[in-house]
Design a protein around this nucleic acid. Structure first.
Lengths: 340, 340
DNA sequence: CTGTTAGCGCGTTCAG
DNA sequence: CTGAACGCGCTAACAG
């Protein structure tokens, strides 16, 4: 059965008490000689401490929960990879959970994670279980929100600078001379959906262009939304000269929609996407994007959590901070000046 | 601090002993009256069992490790989503780990997972830590391998039917009249790399066509491989009339390579990919593929593991079985008959 | 059907 | 510096 080499076995083999063995392996609590001796014995026996027993005693499992909506979204993927790697380096394991953006599933997930006594939690919240998360945080299990903010509850959060990102993207298109810019964006019930729309509006207004709601298509985070948006925007009399796809998942659908109408990017229409991903760079033409900085968000979220994990004593942050990761415009080949 | 409502608190509130409370909450071990009464009390108090303590006692954590190389590969993504969902339904949590196909990292990951006393493990092995995995399996922690087989060690494994898949794909192209079929495939050190190449060869030979090694480009699982393969194969005098991309990650690179040379699919050249993913269907033209059945593999792997998890007593399978998931050819728009 | 007792494996008092 | 004893929260023997 299993690796049943227990501390007791090590102690016995070293002819010391269990507590001495414990101290020797911890290091610096015994004479140097017994320390090295017992560590050698432990290694020879292939001793591995039982995480459960240790956790029961120390109230720390070195487990961290990571909760995302899915793995199709490039940002979530980056989040999963980076967070997992970063935390592993500090001796934490990551429990990955997927909620499908479903509040009930999220509630259950959070509860289960709490049951497992995770030391901390990084989550992209649906926005419906704020109190549950806040309680966890108050109870001493640090919670860091990413990508989406929790409206109701105050909690440490790292977000993309979506208002600025959308502003910069729109502005870029304006500078290229575009005046009718179609926007395909996420549901307005979400932070990112709202903020990206508002950035777009602001850029328009600053340029003295009246905001035209019929140029905007908001929808669910799916390729189908992009396709539908394309159809709606492209079948107009005054077809937009540029499309800003600020709903990441929609990008695929938009590509297909454009192809359906045999519109060439960027000759017939300019295309700007949101949230970079490897595929975009490999596309032909390579897609220009507003990179929302998923990598940096992931790193910061991990770092913030680690910080609070280490200073266990520290208060749950007098005021929960909100961090924003700057967006970055990446010019590739899918946008060009409008021909006048 | 935390949810410190312990079983003891419930027992006290219900004026019974701790063990009675335990039994009541388990159900069916006490009088119906105390059972419902205590369950109500527990609910009111917001009691949640401590998984650690339970695990220490029962030697079961309801934690399952899932180890993959990355999340960029579509099959791994499907694996992660499906396995996690399937196991969750049975009350297991999934610890997701990423090895980057690095043996050292894998070894460390496996050890850590064992420390956490996971109940089982689903892993796409690098192939270098077989003994470690086998030991775990022997020790009573069921291990199921996916996607890649472990050459040295015998272990329960669920694989794609790659020889047949590659055969079917090649055969399809042959039936369309193609005679010079370029193959871009994975490293020959991997099971899938070898098996896909062999399927390709067999189809060729059955059709009475001599295998031409210069039409094959094998490389790492990255888009760059596809690009390099494209260049190598497309710059020949007798350019292939069809490309079979049996290295999933390379597909993006191939698309770019084709675009670079301004070759139109399927007019100028036919293109067949391997391992389906959402993006392929949304491409224009929609990419025909050999679907290796990631979804089915994930389900089967989860089911097999669950089976062994439940019948804890059952022996570690007298002979470790190997399962194969049939491949499926999906004809879309990227292949056409060769013009003669 | 219920209460009492005894660990699971570890870290941490408290004496020596 | 080391050993003995205790308890984390829970389940599973054994009695009653």
């Amino acid at each position: 059965m299993q690796n049943s080499v227990t501390l007791r076995d090590v102690a016995r083999a070293g002819k010391v008490s269990v507590s001495t063995a414990s101290r020797a392996l911890a290091g610096g609590l015994t004479s140097k000689s017994t320390e090295t001796r017992l560590q050698r014995i432990a290694a020879e026996l292939g001793y591995r401490p039982n995480t459960l027993a240790r956790g029961l005693k120390t109230r720390s499992t070195r487990l961290v929960g990571l909760v995302v909506h899915n793995l199709a979204n490039a940002s979530f993927r980056v989040l999963a990879e980076v967070v997992q790697q970063r935390l592993r380096a500090e001796g934490y394991q990551v429990i990955l959970c997927i909620t499908a953006d479903n509040p009930d599933q999220e509630a259950e997930t959070i509860a289960t994670l709490a049951d497992q006594r995770v030391d901390g939690l990084i989550i992209c919240p649906t926005g419906h279980n704020g109190e549950q998360l806040a309680a966890l945080d108050r109870g001493g299990t640090p919670v860091t929100c990413v990508v989406r903010r929790h409206e109701a509850v105050e909690m440490e959060t790292v977000l993309a600078a979506d208002p600025e990102g959308a502003f910069a993207g729109t502005r870029y298109l304006l500078e290229l001379g575009h005046r009718r810019i179609g926007l395909i964006v996420g549901r307005q019930e979400t932070t990112s959906g709202r903020e990206r729309l508002s950035g777009y509006r602001r850029a328009l207004e600053e340029a003295g262009i009246r905001f035209n709601p019929t140029l905007v298509h908001a929808g669910r985070y799916e390729p189908e939304t992009g396709l539908a948006g394309c159809r709606q925007l492209l079948d107009r009399e005054d077809r937009p000269t540029a499309l800003f796809v600020a709903n990441h998942e929609s990008s695929l659908g938009v590509l297909r929609g454009l192809a359906e109408r045999e519109l060439l990017v960027p000759d017939d229409i300019s295309l700007l996407c949101y949230e970079d991903m490897p595929g975009f760079e490999w596309q032909r033409p390579a897609l220009s994007v507003v990179d929302s900085g998923a990598h940096a968000m992931a790193e910061l979220a991990a770092d913030r959590l680690l910080l609070r994990l280490r200073s266990h004593a520290a208060p749950p942050a007098a005021t929960a901070h909100e961090y924003r990761i700057g967006a970055r415009l990446i010019r590739r080949q899918s946008c060009r000046p409008v021909v006048s």
